[in-house]
Design a protein around this nucleic acid. Structure first.
Lengths: 356, 356
DNA sequence: ATGAAAGCGCTAACAC
DNA sequence: GTGTTAGCGCTTTCAT
């Protein structure tokens, strides 16, 4: 059987001091500050006993007493989606360094699930929340934000909410990714996007439009809006486009690009011979096959880091009036040639490739 | 400012009963059972007041008192890896249904990180742990398992530990995936694997060996062991193989397959003309391009579900002596033809494809 | 520089 | 059926 948990009291008894002193010393050690106000030797002794007894503070008790959980919630669209999984991973790693624990949740773009998750997390007790908002959840988020805990928005923004956010410069990304197609001489370029009303998607579209206009291709502008629930609608879109002589597509997301590519192949056409593609977020195999003419590379690590640091700052200054920050990250365009020319994969941000 | 949290006491006062009765009613409601031992009307009144006051139980207090956290930890190699992300997603969804919260952690195949995570999670207070063990962590896991909390191993096993586990029948998978190459007439088949000592990898290799032997190709058996930290070593392997007339590769993991494919392309060869591939775990783009002759499809959803249910069972029967279960899942082989013939993607386990 | 004591919100054993 | 009570382990004034 497992031995009874060692408590602060055991240490006090063992070290011949009071519990409050032990508590004081332990708290300060955690805070990393030099121990002050306490006799150096006493502190030493307490720490020693704690070590010897393998003391581990009880979190529930701490939370109950202090009201702080050192836990944050991260709500994304789908944690099994590469983009979000990567960000989640960054946040997780960084959070541990700050001694925070992270709770994850996925909305599947369903505002009710988002609301539910916010409630569950809130009841569970969290100090702050990082959210990728979904369509139709604006009001719920605003409401929670007003009365409850610090929130940082990720990837997308919420209208009329005075909330901190970390987003990509999606408009610029839209312009530049379209530009990469224009630069290669394509003129009949159309965009495939979602019908969902999301700030990031809308701005990518705006970027496409602007670039086309700038290139004098106004009358060629055309955006196909797919329902994220019925991606098979892309099949007729592709066939129709082919019939109308469309040469290239800009895909608003990686999922769309993948779906589009599948549809193109299913119809017996090839990339880039029959259609040129440009998209947001590449993936390994796109890279290998040189599928896309160009991709927008989003700074994953920055997304995670900025969001977490912003949130922690809010959490630790809850006394002061909240001052929302808006962090806009710069997209990077990766042209196909650059990928092909790249060396055998070497070190990335993290340690090493992970086997499965 | 946010109003003071309403407590059980507020409800008691408001409803004109004692706190214990409120507690009793609330607990039973959560348990889903019919309220018994309590006056129906009183219970009704309490529930009503709780509702009106928007009472939310304080988790820290509950945990402190009861010792149960209704939180479990899930430690995988890398939560941003598709295989683990998918499993994590399943576990997360299911856990919420069981009213459990999930903490995630990634080891990066580093036994020290694993140990550290186990400690952090344990101190945080969790009721149970699902672990994908990594090389060199066997002892640490055994130690924790003996004295601490219920553990379920996932994907890989630990030698000499009487622990529950959920794994694939990797040997069978190894046989059948090799078979799919043999069946197509390839005879010069080699395997690319990791040098790491992991139960699943080892069994996949064993499967390859057995199949080759059965096919009378003993003398062709050859397994290349790469260090997961230095995957660029695959380049010379591929070149050498080509020179020796190797026709096909079996890759022990998806990451290896991707790396191998990159190396093959980098050397100017093509798939399947110059090399045929078979591997574990496909991915969308492999499917689209028909890259692999065949893939092992692991039953992701089952992995998650079985592991979680096993764990919950252990948690809720901690009084009884632990009876470890070993669940072996059956691999499915997907041949290239089957993929090409498949219809436009329709509903999967979950609701709908997720945009990014 | 150290200790005593009062809870944080809840559960569970027991009393009525 | 319902109320009383004693903590769970810790932090935090306030004394000393």
């Amino acid at each position: 059987m497992r031995t009874r948990k060692v408590t602060i009291k055991d240490i006090a008894t063992e070290a011949g001091v009071s519990v409050s002193l032990v508590s004081f010393v332990m708290t300060n050690r955690a805070g990393g500050k030099d121990v002050y106000r306490v006799n150096k030797e006493t502190a030493q002794r307490i720490l020693e006993v704690a070590e010897r007894l393998r003391y581990q503070p009880n979190n529930a008790a701490r939370t109950l007493r202090s009201g702080k959980t050192r836990t944050i919630g991260v709500i994304v669209s789908d944690i099994s989606n590469k983009f979000f999984a990567d960000i989640a991973r960054c946040i997780e790693d960084l959070a541990y360094k700050h001694k925070y624990t992270v709770l994850f949740g996925s909305t599947d773009e369903n505002p009710r699930k988002l609301e539910n998750l916010m409630t569950v997390f809130f009841n569970r007790g969290i100090d702050g929340l990082i959210i990728v908002p979904c369509e139709g959840a604006d009001q719920a988020i605003r409401r929670v934000a007003q009365q409850e805990i610090p929130i940082v928005l990720l990837d997308r923004e919420v209208e009329g909410a005075e909330l901190s956010s970390v987003v990509l410069n999606n408009c610029k990304a839209g312009i530049r990714i379209t530009e990469s197609l224009v630069d290669r001489g394509y003129t009949h370029i159309e965009m495939v996007s979602y019908s969902m009303s999301l700030s990031n998607i809308r701005e990518r579209e705006e970027g496409y439009r602007r670039c086309m206009a700038l290139a004098g291709l106004e009358e060629r502008i055309r955006i196909h809006h797919l329902h994220h629930d019925r991606l098979e609608q892309i099949d007729p879109v592709v066939r129709d486009a082919r019939a109308r002589g469309v040469e290239a597509f800009v895909f608003a997301t990686n999922t769309l690009a993948l779906t589009g590519l599948t549809a193109i192949h299913r119809n017996g056409w090839h990339v880039p011979q029959d259609f040129a593609l440009a998209c947001f977020d590449s993936n390994e195999t796109f890279d290998i096959y040189g599928t896309a003419v160009a991709c927008v590379r989003q700074p994953i690590e920055q997304f995670g880091r900025e969001a977490l640091e912003l949130l922690i700052r809010h959490i630790e200054h809850r006394d002061q009036p909240p001052s929302p920050a808006r962090i806009v990250l710069t997209p990077e365009i990766v042209e196909q040639g650059d990928i092909a020319a790249s060396e055998p994969s070497s070190a990335s941000d993290r340690a090493a490739p992970i086997p499965v």
